[in-house]
Design a protein around this nucleic acid. Sequence first.
DNA 1: ATTGACAATGAAAATCATTATCAATAATAG
DNA 2: CTATTATTGATAATGATTTTCATTGTCAAT
Lengths: 150, 150
Amino acid sequence: MRYPWWQHRLYKAGYRLTNPRQVVINILKNTDKHLSAEDIYVDSLKINSSIGLTTVYRTLDLFQQIGIVQKFDFGEGKARYELIKNPIKKEHHHHIICVKCKEIVDYTDFLNEELELINKTEKALSEKYQFKILHHTVHFYGMCSKCQAT
Amino acid sequence: MRYPWWQHRLYKAGYRLTNPRQVVINILKNTDKHLSAEDIYVDSLKINSSIGLTTVYRTLDLFQQIGIVQKFDFGEGKARYELIKNPIKKEHHHHIICVKCKEIVDYTDFLNEELELINKTEKALSEKYQFKILHHTVHFYGMCSKCQAT
DNA sequence: ATTGACAATGAAAATCATTATCAATAATAG
DNA sequence: CTATTATTGATAATGATTTTCATTGTCAAT
């Protein structure tokens, strides 16, 4: 394929390639953090100072719908976004979230053991419920050591 | 124990038993839906017309922190709440969410197969990352059949 | 039963992430 | 290169959640 995978997805779904979309992709590609729309907007201004926050929101929403980006809600009152990682690759991870201070810990333990189950589940669910599944999340919620002390 | 489990948790964590808290618990106990704060507020008015929306929010947040209630963010722009279900019991379930129309499907398939892995993971994570884990979520995101057609 | 300390409440205003509106601009087809 | 649309950006609007603060309720100790 002559285009990057995400560009393929854009075209295949009938959307155009624009500068704001490239900028957002690049920002996400170059971080391993979970960025909020605001974070991405601020970063995007460094590259193209005319990009609007609205466009960032629209772009992230679009990317999420065509399966380029994963949207996370950790209960902070705002969403965070990440490029979808291949579950087979190392970058794939899950999260532990403190219900009090909202600290987020990424973990990669047991992902191999989980992979088979997830694949099996994903396959069965997409047939049974007629969903085209794009990605999944596993979140453990609890209280971090600091907040337990309080 | 002479008190219901949730009441124990309240007292153990140093909180008082109040009418609004009882009302919120009762509403959650008598539904299998994922209610929003507003939903719960509306229902609570039928029981005690002087309860405020603010208190509902505060109560849900408190319950979430002491492990009575599970807070869900399905990406609708508002949170939903549910009493924590015992993973061993039948009521425990996970979710499939349409990234476009936000339809939420509960599923209980493969939960038995999952149980062992979840328990093992939960134990290991709580030791490794020093979290007191209260509950977990598994979400599959995709596009429902209706939205695929559009 | 009464009281005092302080947790909890409710009303209203404030905050803040996200979305709608709409005229201007840019990307692709032909 | 031009026409046709998708896309954009500025702004205003929305709506869920939080803050503030004066009032009230809970519970342990009288």
